[in-house]
C-alpha cells in the first residue's frame, strides 16, 4: 500500500531533500504535496487526503506548532500522524511537540537514515518497498 505525504517547509531546498530521502528510502509513496507554511498545508488538506505530514517548525504565516494545534482541533484531520522536522531541538521544544500530538521529531541536520528510521516508526515498515541489495542511490 502506498502512502500520501504532505511536506511543509518554507525552504524549497528542504522540501526537495525530504521528498528525495523518502523516495530513496524505498517507501511506497503515492501523492506528495508540498506546502510552504501551516496555512498552505491546511489548504492542501481540504482537497487531499494525507497519510503522514512532515513539517518544519520555524515558518512564516503559520508555524509547525500552530499547524499541529489546528490539526488537533479538527476531528477529521487530528488522526493524521505528524513528524516535526526542525533545527530547534531543545528538550522543552520536543516535549511541547509531543504534547501537541506530534508522532516523531527529526533534528536538522539529519542523515537520510535518521529520516527513514522515524518514518518507519510512524507509518510502519510495511510501507517500505523491497529495493534490492545492489541498488545504488545517487544522493
Amino acid at each position: 500500500m502506498s502512502f500520501n505525504v504532505l511536506i511543509v517547509d518554507d525552504s524549497i531546498s528542504m522540501r526537495a531533500v525530504i521528498k528525495k530521502i523518502i523516495l530513496i528510502s524505498g517507501f511506497k509513496m503515492g501523492q506528495c504535496v508540498e506546502a510552504a507554511n501551516g496555512k498552505e498545508a491546511l489548504k492542501a488538506l481540504e482537497d487531499n487526503w494525507m497519510d503522514v505530514i512532515v513539517s518544519d517548525i520555524n515558518m512564516p504565516e503559520m508555524n509547525g506548532f500552530e499547524l499541529l494545534q489546528s490539526l488537533k482541533e479538527d476531528d477529521f484531520l487530528k488522526h493524521i500522524p505528524v513528524i516535526l522536522i526542525s533545527t530547534e531541538g531543545s528538550k522543552e521544544r520536543m516535549r511541547d511537540a509531543f504534547n501537541l500530538g506530534a508522532k516523531g521529531f527529526i533534528k536538522k541536520p539529519f542523515t537520510p537514515e535518521a529520516v527513514k528510521q522515524i518514518l518507519c516508526e510512524v507509518i510502519g515498515e510495511s510501507n517500505e518497498e523491497d529495493t534490492g541489495d545492489t541498488e545504488v542511490f545517487d544522493f
Binding site: 526542525s86 533545527t87 530547534e88 531541538g89 531543545s90 528538550k91 522543552e92 536538522k108
Partner: peptide, 16 residues
C-alpha cells in the same frame, strides 16, 4: 537556519 539551531541546541539543550 541549521547552523544557528544546531549551535543553540548544543549551547544549552535545556533552554528554548
Amino acid at each position: 537556519n541549521m547552523i544557528c539551531g544546531n549551535f543553540l541546541g548544543k549551547y544549552d539543550s535545556t533552554k528554548v
